[in-house]
Simulated assay, not measured.
Amino acid sequence: MSDVAQQLPAPLQEPEVTPPRIRSGSSVWIWALALAALAVAGAVVALRLAALQRELRAVQQRSEEVSALHASDVAERQSLQERMDSTVRRTEQLEQQLTLLAGRDTAADAELRRLREEHVLTEVDELLTLAGSQLQVVRDPNAAIAALASADARLARVPRSQFFALREALGRDIERLRKVPVVDVTGSAIRLDRLVQGVDSWHFLADPTRRLAAAPAPKPRSEAAPPARFGWIGTELGDTLRELVRIRTAEAPDSLLLTPEQHPLVREHLRMRLMMARQAILMRNQVLVRADLGDSMAIINRYFDTSDPLVGAAVTQLKALTTAAIDAPMPTLDDSLGALRAARPTTP
């Protein structure tokens, strides 16, 4: 029987059919790998979202602490202003009393002069304390200059030779304070407010609606080499593919995995960082300002498209605010305090 099969011509033999098991098996593996990759990507995104939520809670807690510190500073400044107002009222009352006493009896002129000098020195002491508080707590040289100028005006009302050295010391301290560099804290806070308002208009790296920058224009045909026969077909195909496919480099590939639902969370996190930097600027805390601005620039460079003109301008402003000095050293009032101690009469 086998001899007969061997003698049959080739067209009458049955062709061998290979089972398509290998191809179906490879398809199953491909689908399995694809599902595994999607599961890993989903796990990475879930872990990143949980980390961002924890960091957002920490930032909110820190913002509450900064707000409490700012509220305490405002309360202290109000207390200082109330002390100054009470001092002014007490001065007016004492001046009225001194005027009444001066008109009653000329024999008590010496005592009245002594009381008035003591009162003026007490008032100058209060104003110097207020000026020192303005320098150390509020770090406002203009308010300190106003307090020292008010003290000098009080001394000018009592022309005594023992007050000349004190007035000279006040003048030197005023000139020293006028040379202190002025820090535009309000302007820096306003710039951060504008950045906070513009966060919603910035584009993400993972934004599918964001169009990439235009590709460089090809060389003019007059400058390029003359194409060969039918070479223009390849040139046209190359230009078309170059317009369809763009390649860009991302420093953090996981930033491209952000879903549109996660975009508001990242924007809110960035907005909180900028607001904390604003609070630190108002507190004149250089360390906190640089830390918060550095975190803000790290978030922008990681998740946002820096080729966007708005994002690029924001990064430039943040760099300028980081390098700006908001905590200039304040001079002391040691000369005026020493002259005040020397001007006080010695008690036997």
Results as ranks from 00 to 15, higher is better:
residue 114 R to N: 06
residue 196 V to Q: 08
residue 334 D to F: 08
residue 219 K to C: 08
residue 66 V to D: 08
residue 121 L to K: 00
residue 200 D to N: 14
residue 10 A to G: 12
residue 32 A to D: 06
residue 328 A to I: 12
residue 198 G to M: 09
residue 252 A to P: 08
residue 337 L to D: 05
residue 260 P to R: 05
residue 253 P to F: 06
residue 274 L to H: 02
residue 335 D to W: 04
residue 214 A to R: 10
residue 210 R to P: 03
residue 346 T to R: 13
residue 295 D to S: 13
residue 223 E to K: 10
residue 274 L to M: 04
residue 13 Q to W: 15
residue 334 D to A: 11
residue 89 R to M: 11
residue 323 T to Q: 07
residue 194 R to G: 08
residue 263 H to N: 10
residue 218 P to T: 03
residue 264 P to G: 01
residue 74 V to A: 12
residue 128 L to F: 00
residue 226 P to H: 10
residue 348 P to D: 09
residue 179 K to N: 11
residue 315 V to E: 09
residue 93 Q to E: 13
residue 86 S to Q: 13
residue 124 V to N: 01
residue 268 E to T: 09
residue 281 I to L: 02
residue 5 A to I: 09
residue 145 I to F: 01
residue 240 T to A: 12
residue 131 A to M: 03
residue 81 Q to E: 06
residue 191 R to A: 12
residue 202 W to S: 06
residue 173 D to M: 01
residue 153 A to Q: 03
residue 288 L to A: 10
residue 34 A to F: 15
residue 211 R to L: 14
residue 280 A to R: 02
residue 19 P to T: 11
residue 136 Q to M: 09
residue 63 S to G: 14
residue 38 L to K: 05
residue 64 E to L: 15
residue 73 D to F: 14
residue 301 N to R: 15
residue 81 Q to L: 08
residue 31 W to A: 13
residue 9 P to H: 09
residue 256 L to V: 03
residue 194 R to N: 10
residue 262 Q to L: 10
residue 296 S to C: 03
residue 187 G to N: 05
residue 23 R to F: 12
residue 109 D to C: 03
residue 9 P to N: 09
residue 345 P to K: 03
residue 214 A to F: 08
residue 5 A to D: 11
residue 181 P to A: 05
residue 289 V to E: 02
residue 253 P to Q: 04
residue 303 Y to G: 01
residue 242 R to Q: 06
residue 219 K to T: 14
residue 285 N to P: 03
residue 232 W to I: 09
residue 46 A to L: 13
residue 132 G to T: 02
residue 313 A to N: 10
residue 305 D to N: 07
